[in-house]
Design a protein around this nucleic acid. Structure first.
Length: 186
DNA sequence: TGCACGATGAAC
DNA sequence: TTCATCGTGCAC
């Protein structure tokens, strides 16, 4: 039997870089209106916590970053540039404000439109700020290991759009599947 | 209460 | 390279 397996709380309750690396190749699933929307994660970025100057949590606990500071396995969804939503997966223990940004998907089923970029990913999956704080071990929005995972090599690069973060902007915390055509940029 | 600035995407 | 567009965080 090689059935897909939903990721449990323990998966997210680990070192953020380890979770980010393990998220590559996993499936993001959103069940909406009886339709199952599924995409294979091909690109992510790790945001390590308040000490990481590129992370939203570096501003401390606020209404917006509340979810990042909360328990692992929840969705942190925020509006960026006044028009696009970005989805993160909260990692590490309750009180540790770290997360992994989902940047690109390879369409598997039920997806409409492009998925190569954090804003496009949310649009195609039908994810917006109403999903902020959702428990990813629940049944509507979750991640799972595919039944038949395909092997891949991982590329490590600096994160995108965080040049303001000084030395943290140069850290290799962006990970993507080598050669995958759905990565947002090479 | 006001304002500068994005973890982006699309057009020019 | 420029612009759309608005919530957030911080300065007054």
């Amino acid at each position: 039997m090689d059935a897909a397996a939903k990721l449990e709380r323990a998966f997210y309750d680990r070192d953020t870089v380890a979770v980010a690396l393990d998220l590559l190749g996993k499936h993001l699933v959103h069940e909406v209106g009886g339709v199952r929307r599924v995409g294979r994660i091909v690109e992510v970025e790790a945001y390590l916590g308040p000490h990481d100057r590129a992370a939203h949590s570096s501003r401390g606990l606020t209404a917006r970053t509340r979810v990042m500071f909360g328990p692992p396995g929840h969705a942190y969804v925020y509006l960026i540039y006044g028009m696009h939503c970005c989805m993160n997966v909260v990692t590490e223990a309750d009180g540790q404000a770290a997360a992994v940004l989902l940047r690109a998907l390879e369409p598997v089923c039920g997806l409409d439109g492009r998925t190569q970029g954090p804003g496009l990913l949310c649009k195609a999956m039908g994810i917006d700020r109403r999903h902020n704080g959702l428990d990813l071990t629940d049944t509507r929005l979750y991640l799972e290991s595919p039944a038949k995972p395909e092997p891949f090599a991982i590329v490590r690069r600096p994160r995108v759009g965080v040049d303001y973060a000084g030395a943290w902007a140069r850290r290799l915390l962006r990970f993507y599947i080598k050669g995958n055509p759905f990565v947002s940029r090479s």
